[in-house]
Write a protein that binds this DNA or RNA. Structure first.
Lengths: 104, 104
DNA sequence: TATATTTGCAACTCAATGGTTGCAAATAAT
DNA sequence: ATTATTTGCAACCATTGAGTTGCAAATATA
């Protein structure tokens, strides 16, 4: 199964995990406690996030701490970039021209 | 079924549709022709994109033209914003401080 | 008017997703 | 050494996902 960041952030729980560990590295148990669900459910989410390198693991004894890898988020940002240029209005003038051509 | 932009862009076909119609409004048949798949498959994707307002429809006779709604992409951008601040290195100094505390 | 084109809706299949429980391995605490 | 804690793996279940085909409705064309 191919993993990519787009699929990874599709799940609201995974987005919440990313937000949490961006603030502070956490163990799977701590995360499971924070959400209502089981540890295994969280671990599955983490596995998906780790497969596409959005999180990194750091072992400390028998505990695992999950860190955010913010660099990987750049993939999202890169995909968004051309659209951002559009909504920031840089092409508004072009839109107007096209609209005028249509209505005339 | 709740639709949000994160789930909408999780599918690679839907991302491709968004990129295509950002350049030029297209009909479902034209989109289906562009991809290998059937018109109904494309229409299903469009339905999902329309439900979360990423695309708008414009009827012209029996044909439907799909337009991108770039404003809706801002939701993605907003979610990404705090992470962007991180990878842009604004917190690098803080990271270094924390690393130093750990290793000492 | 009769035919062709464009689309929507419903039913169906198959694979993937998110969740659970149970058990084993590894590490920490008593 | 024994017990408790933390995690990973496997099996299983219910729901959703993306895709298909078939048919009906609406619009254009002959």
């Amino acid at each position: 199964m191919r993993r990519d960041v787009f699929q990874a952030i599709a799940d609201p729980t995974r987005r919440a995990i990313l937000t949490l560990i961006a603030f502070q590295a956490m163990t799977p148990n701590a995360l499971a406690e924070h959400f209502g669900s089981s540890r295994q459910a969280v671990s599955k989410h983490i596995k998906i996030l780790a497969e596409c390198e959005l999180v990194r693991q750091e072992a400390s004894g028998r505990e695992l701490y999950y860190h955010l890898n913010p660099n990987k988020m750049k993939e999202l940002d890169s995909w968004l970039q051309p659209f951002r240029e559009t909504w920031e209005g840089r092409f508004n003038q072009l839109d107007n021209i096209l609209d005028n051509l249509k209505t005339k």
